[in-house]
């Protein structure tokens, strides 16, 4: 990584860490983790399973909210505050600027996820659960999801106003977690006329379930690390395409 990308990443990381919105979102995620115990009491299922499910889902929302609230407005804020003027008139390229912003944002989002994950681990241990490889796999999946959500937020932030970029990131998240339903529709063969359409959509639309290993924490089955590796490659492909798009858009931008 070039020193310029690293410098921009560090500045982005520090800037995002001091964002009050970030504190609010992290407090919300930690509250969800802690609240999961209450649901465990109310649930007829295994209490620790509820803690896992609810907390990890909450952490997935944490990634989404961070991408929507911090990532999607990141570029617009640089332009609005005109800090971009003092950066882009130096030797760095706009490509380096986008990559630096991406690395910095992913860094801060990962830090938040790891913090919430640590709270979850302590919480699970407190209530008699254990930390296994399934929880590690679920955490890695969430961190991969954060990567692609950050790339979406930056891409849409380079394309449109922050509010639209936030809504677009939310839509990407919803679609990403709903794509699996298309495969089920195809497999069930209920609408054979639309099977081809479902099949194409399933392949074209993002599928965040490829890195969703939350269920693995409670299913009792061993973690399929190969599937996680394939999911990581899948996410990195999407991320590369989105970042390339963000770079192309940002290089054409007039300030």
């Amino acid at each position: 990584m070039s020193t310029r990308i690293a410098a921009i990443a560090v500045a982005t990381f520090k800037e995002a860490l001091r964002d009050r919105l970030l504190v609010l979102v992290v407090v919300f995620a930690v509250a969800m983790v802690l609240f999961s115990r209450v649901l465990g009491w109310l649930s007829v299922e295994d209490e620790v399973k509820m803690v896992h499910d609810f907390s990890l889902t909450g952490m997935s929302f944490l990634s989404l909210f961070l991408a929507m609230l911090v990532g999607a407005s990141s570029l617009a804020r640089e332009v609005e505050r005109r800090t971009v003027y003092t950066v882009l008139t130096r030797t760095g390229t706009r490509t380096e600027f986008i990559l630096g912003k991406f690395v910095g944002l992913v860094g801060v989002f990962w830090l938040c996820l790891l913090g919430a994950g640590l709270v979850l681990a302590l919480w699970v241990l407190t209530w008699g659960g254990s930390i296994g490889e399934a929880l590690v796999a679920a955490m890695i999946g969430l961190m991969l999801e954060a990567i692609v959500l950050t790339a979406v937020a930056l891409f849409l932030g380079a394309l449109a106003a922050p509010a639209i970029a936030s809504v677009g990131t939310f839509a990407f998240y919803l679609i990403g977690h709903g794509t699996e339903a298309l495969r089920e529709l195809t497999d069930q063969g209920k609408n054979p006329d639309f099977a081809a359409v479902y099949s194409v959509l399933y392949r074209v639309l993002p599928n965040l379930e490829n890195v969703n290993f939350i269920n693995a924490t409670t299913s009792g089955r061993p973690v399929d690390w190969g599937a996680l590796g394939a999911g990581a490659l899948y996410v990195l492909c999407w991320t590369s395409v989105l970042l390339a798009g963000a770079i192309i858009l940002f290089r054409r931008r007039q300030f």
């Binding site: 500045a11 520090k14 800037e15 001091r18 505050r81 005109r82 800090t83 003027y85 003092t86």
Partner: peptide, 10 residues
């Protein structure tokens, strides 16, 4: 630039 802004936390 005119009325320059910098990364505030630095």
């Amino acid at each position: 630039p005119e009325n320059p802004y910098f990364y505030e936390h630095l």
